[in-house]
Write a protein that binds this DNA or RNA. Structure first.
Length: 585
RNA sequence: GGGCACGUAGCUCAGUCCGGAGAGAGCGUCGGACUUCUAAUCCGACGGUCGUGGGUUCGAAUCCCAUCGUGCCCGCCA
């Protein structure tokens, strides 16, 4: 009910200011400090003080007196404290929040009737997913989830770069070398770990072999690229054999997170259907196009980009961005909006794409980018080609092992007599281990750099996933013990009167607004911050408010409803983050 | 050299978009709380020139300018 309450406050303030013939452009509405019992506040009195020739506290009082709360359901009263106006909620606010949160989909906002394609990960199919890349699926999945919960109609796409130079090199190397040429065993028994050895071998060969050998190899690589450009069937099959195998392995790895996709869109698709050629022709016709140094380029100075964008090589083949432009026009044809999650190293390319889409007559406002910084090792960047980096599979394995150890050591001094069996332990180890990895990454602002350190990545201490997951397990424990989940008619929210109960309910009430903000601003880390506040409030409530042994039946019933509300809220918040919500821990 | 990001407690981070109520957490350190619905919990203490210097403002971690440090980018690679 926070969102409707906010609307009421805005409406009440606007009405009040209009009645006094004051400007309504800035209502100064903000969230008050935590130790106040007001739900919203306004600092507008500061700005109106000079205009009214009175000190801010007097202005605040004058405004508070003028506000009419009668027409509103959730706005109960306005008070002042110095220069601030404080807005207080009604009993109906509590009651209806508690009722709304009994629904297991609490936080799911109304359908906006707007479709959006969220493209994320899109890692080149060159080898195993390493931790440097892993921020993308974890962030991307959360962005998609947040938008979905905020009411958008979301599709998740993985754009497969199967037509670039890297894949041509890979295909050439895969065909040229034999197992006996390779100098190591696969690090893991899965296709991408096997095949990446050819890719690395090929790259080191190109760096170290003698000139004529490199020349011959480059000729073969160029012929593969040209074969793709010309739509040659056999070339597609050769490249496809490598791409599909490697991608298949990468999908298995990503599924462990899990990060799932509605569609894998191959870039060769936009070569085969002629849209890349057609697009290049259209670009040539624009006033931005120049033919320099035997290649077609686009001058983007007007867009503040001083680097020319080459869109056709001198041999007439297309480049990644050319194909990606066709890809994005396809997105615009099929979706209302497009969101792309990509590393900061692709930022310039994203700006060029944005500018060029505009030149081609598209509305660039329909495309948003979510940019994140790479996860680096203390000693530098991770690289598939060079074989440096921590593999996501290894990180997940370690995290699960660490979580399993934790569960087992806690087994002995466990109070609850629910007899965890081996399957439970394994389940909890997976939920907590993988959850901790995801939470650690998704809870930080994407623009902040992360340096990967094993001890930090495997730190399950507070302010991490298990802290929040534990709240869910506690809720489940209570509700299971009570042997009933209350329905919306069987409780009275008014009996929830302790500070801890009111605080928890107040936090629960804000959840839909947090979803709205995270979904609209593409900032899922806000949900992680919120889960921490929610968990803190719940633990405070848990400490001081017995539920099953409450002093009377009404209190017990209302607290059970509050526990169910907290459970749905924490479960749905974790679900947006892609973190499992364990029933027991 | 140019462009873009980041810089908040010893460490890891919220807060910055949209300026407002003594700058908040966690880890670590120190001290407390389990005959209790799960102690992966809770309570308390210690700890901060919000990189630095200017400016705007009644008010700046937040906006502007400058500066330093770190990262990323500046390929007919992706």
């Amino acid at each position: 009910m926070f969102r409707p309450f906010r609307s009421e406050v805005e409406s009440a303030m606007t009405g009040c200011l209009e009645a006094l013939d004051l400007p309504t452009g800035d209502l100064g509405i903000e969230e008050p400090p935590e130790d106040l019992d007001a739900t919203l506040a306004s600092s507008v009195a500061f700005r109106l003080a000079s205009e009214l020739g009175a000190a801010p506290p007097q202005v605040a009082q004058q405004l508070a007196d003028a506000v009419d709360t009668d027409p509103y359901d959730y706005l109960d009263a306005v008070s002042t404290q110095g220069p601030y106006l404080n807005f207080h909620t009604s009993d109906a606010y509590q009651t209806e929040t508690l009722e709304a949160a009994q629904e297991s989909d609490y936080g799911q906002l109304e359908d906006r009737g707007e479709s959006v394609v969220v493209e994320h990960t899109s890692a080149n199919p060159t080898g195993p997913v390493h931790v440097g890349r892993a921020r993308n699926p974890i962030l991307g999945d959360a962005v998609a989830n947040a938008m979905e919960m905020a009411g958008y109609d979301v599709e998740r796409h993985y754009y497969v770069n199967d037509a670039g130079r890297q894949m041509a090199v890979f295909t050439w190397a895969y065909e040229k070398f034999d197992e006996s040429d390779l100098d190591s065993e696969p690090a893991r028994d899965r296709t991408e770990y096997d095949l990446v050895r050819y890719y690395r071998k090929g790259n080191s060969y190109l760096e170290t072999a003698d000139e004529s050998a490199v020349e011959a190899a480059e000729a073969e690589i160029a012929s593969i690229l040209q074969g793709l450009e010309a739509g040659d069937e056999e070339t597609y099959e050769r490249v496809g054999e490598v791409v599909d195998q490697v991608l298949g392995g990468m999908k298995e790895c990503l599924a462990r997170l899990p990060a799932e996709f509605d569609e894998f869109v191959k870039e060769t698709r936009f070569m085969v259907d002629g849209s890349t050629d057609e697009l290049a022709e259209r670009l040539k016709e624009t006033e931005y196009a120049v033919y320099e140094e035997d290649a077609w380029q686009l001058e983007l100075d007007e867009y503040g980009i001083d680097k020319n964008l080459v869109f056709l090589r001198s041999d007439e083949t297309s480049l990644y961005t050319t194909r990606d432009l066709a890809h994005h026009e396809w997105k615009f044809d099929n979706f209302d909006r497009a969101v792309t999650v990509l590393g900061e190293d692709h930022k310039l390319q994203a700006e060029q794409l944005q500018a060029t889409l505009d030149i081609l007559g598209n509305d660039p406002e329909r495309l948003d980018d979510v940019i994140y910084s790479y996860v680096n090792l203390p000693e530098g960047k991770m690289s598939t080609r060079r074989g440096t980096g921590v593999m996501l599979d290894d990180l997940l394995d370690e995290a699960i092992d660490r979580a399993r150890e934790e569960v087992e050591t806690r087994l002995d001094d466990r109070i609850r007599d629910d007899e965890l069996d081996d399957d439970d332990i394994e389940r909890i180890a997976h939920q907590v281990g993988i959850g901790a990895v995801r939470y650690d990454i998704v809870s930080k602002q994407p623009t902040k750099g992360i340096t990967f350190r094993w001890d930090e990545a495997l730190d399950f201490e507070a302010q991490s996933a298990p802290y929040v997951q534990y709240v869910h397990a506690r809720c489940c424990g209570i509700l299971e013990e009570a042997d009933t989940e209350p329905t919306a008619t069987e409780f009275d929210a008014d009996v929830l009167s302790t500070p801890e109960e009111r605080d928890l309910l107040a936090v629960v009430a804000r959840f839909p607004a947090v979803i709205e903000e995270a979904g609209e601003d593409l900032e899922p880390h806000r949900i992680a911050t919120y889960t921490r506040e929610l968990a803190e409030s719940f633990n405070g409530f848990y400490r001081s408010c017995p539920v099953l042994t409450a002093e009377d039946a009404d209190t017990r019933q209302a607290r059970l409803a509050l526990v169910a509300a907290a459970k749905h809220t924490v479960a749905n918040a974790l679900s947006v983050l892609g973190v499992a919500a364990p029933d027991s821990m």
